[in-house]
Amino acid sequence: MESARPTSNVPPSVATILTWLLPGAGHAVLGAWPIALLGFALVEGLYLLGYLVSDGVVFEFLDPELRGRFALVLAPEFGNLGALLLHQLAQPLTMPAGPVPIAPPLPPASVHLGAVLTATSGVLNMVLMCHAHLTALVRRHARPEQGATDQKAAADTQRAVDRTAVQVAAGWMVPGAGHWLQGRKRRALLVAVALLGVFAIGTFLSQGTNLSREHHFYYWSGQALIGLPAFVAEALRGHPPLMSVPPMIDAGLFFATLAGLLNGLVLIDVYAWGESGALGRDPVADRRAMAAHRRESKSAAKRGSSGSRSGAKAPASKHLVAPHPAGAASDVTADDAEGTR
């Protein structure tokens, strides 16, 4: 007997927030137990490993005057909120009482590895959140009457969801890899050259000091979004002896962090493309519909400001969907639309 096509009324935002609080919880609510357990083990295992190898002092580099209630919101570990909160309960990051010691106790040598592991845990949980969000979204869109008859389409949809998460993770690890896996190879190369180039300029200008969380806590957090290049560069020459402050340090930090933050935007693009495909829509047509909507909104606003105030309102963007020619989730790549590479 065939099992029914999985449907769910769990809102995608609920699945996402549950995953943020506890990796795998969103999938558990959706009934996707294998991914829930695997995600929990991977994400929390990485955090625990990082905690253990660093003696839990990965945040102690933060300057005492910056330690506030929300000081860690900008750390990559914030992506794994449950573990971060638990960590803070066990080992709170507080303002030291009394005068700051001139020579605080040295952290263990493995603290940098610990920081990379806990940061990776936070970013991977964000990928898991993307997966939970998209899983909930496609299950909400699945019609129950398709149930027993449409198993192949359901499997295809789930594969498209899994692929999207893998593409986002790959895009984090190597800028451009997400686009490459989606078949958007020219875009992938441009993203890789632009972001790796900007990151290399930043590292060169700041003479490698940007790679140290010890010296630049928040800038390190920003450039952690560029993934492996930042971590590999840190492992190779991230902690040079600091004899003097590099003259172009500010520009260097700006460039390196900019590369990481721009990769965050690139990852959103990778996810949005994958989401359109998983929902059985044509991503290119979706983009064109959104661009047309923006143009319409602009011209309506212009008409409204120059003429009467009773201009027609543009439709909400969430209704702007373009059905995929195949009508179902499929391997939507740029190959499907001429001129998108």
């Binding site: 441009l190 993203v191 632009a194 900007v198 935007l265």
Partner: peptide, 21 residues
């Protein structure tokens, strides 16, 4: 340097907003 940074931002922005290359 500012031009390089702005070029990178413009590039990413253009490729995210536009549907085709």
């Amino acid at each position: 340097l500012l031009a390089v940074a702005v070029l990178a931002i413009s590039l990413v922005n253009a490729f995210i907003v536009e549907a085709d290359d």
